[in-house]
Design a protein around this nucleic acid. Structure first.
Lengths: 141, 141
DNA sequence: GATACAAGGTAACTATGTGAGACCAGCGCC
DNA sequence: GGCGCTGGTCTCACATAGTTACCTTGTATC
């Protein structure tokens, strides 16, 4: 069945906060809030780095690891699996002499690149101000 | 995500990704990478919710807590402090009968609203596809 | 036989984020 | 005096994220 070997770690649904009640603005704290979903995905330590790497084109497992030297194999595997589970990354196994596995962005995965780029642009523009504010705050203590 | 001190991993200069034409991508895994800074800030559980609440106007401490019912006082205080430290939120104390504290976005804080809105728009558009992919993946196990 | 690579799996451990809830100050109220 | 409100701080405990290290299967190389 596709690439899916029968052995996969048990998927752990991310539990969310108990239901809130009352008005819901566009910023909802509900469990099924899509924002929460997205931020839980890209908010971790490695997802954006991996997406950025795959944005340059398909990579094999070890190629991703070379591109992001300080990631451990375990986290690379796990993050890749999570991204695959969410349909942002596709995994293809080629039965070459040493079997090689290739990861690439799906069409859906490509669409997150632009929102991410907007955020990155903001980060680049603002990080000087943030660092200044941070220093000022820390010295004011 | 990293609250408090920035956890500095050993900065590793990385070579150009294989297969790419030597262009330096904006996706760096360096420790002082602004993207990491931003995602560490907004990637946590409450920051975006608080920013969204304050986007509607200044709020007092307890008003924010009413707007986000499932946040604990501890996390509210801590996240507000972190946002203040980064210059995204300003804190003003008024010596009223019970002293009241008002939080509002700084001009810098206002500027993150748009990148965030772009991301939220993507999340809204894509969360159906993500959930579908997730279900398919989970059942393929 | 020993070593290395491919792409992982797994266990043991640590670090951190988050939550629950007690406690604190000053003030008003009855 | 006792209770509640304001905006916090504090400690304890837990669950999850993340790291390190060692294991697998098979082929190729030394």
């Amino acid at each position: 069945m596709g690439h899916g070997e029968a052995k996969v770690t048990t998927p752990q649904p991310r539990a969310a906060a108990p239901g809130s009640s009352g008005k819901r603005p566009q910023w909802s704290s509900d469990a099924d809030c899509p924002v929460r979903d997205v931020l839980d995905r890209i908010g971790d330590k490695w997802s954006t780095l991996i997406l950025g790497t795959l944005a340059e084109g398909p990579h094999r497992f070890s190629a991703v690891q070379r591109a992001i030297p300080d990631i451990s194999k375990r986290m690379l595997t796990q993050t890749l699996r999570d991204l695959e589970r969410d349909g942002l990354v596709a995994r293809a196994v080629y039965p070459t002499k040493p079997p090689s596995v290739e990861y690439r962005l799906t069409p859906l995965g490509e669409t997150i690149l632009e929102p991410l780029a907007v955020l990155i642009r903001w980060a680049d523009l603002s990080h000087a101000a943030i660092r200044t504010a941070r220093s000022a705050f820390d010295e004011a203590i």
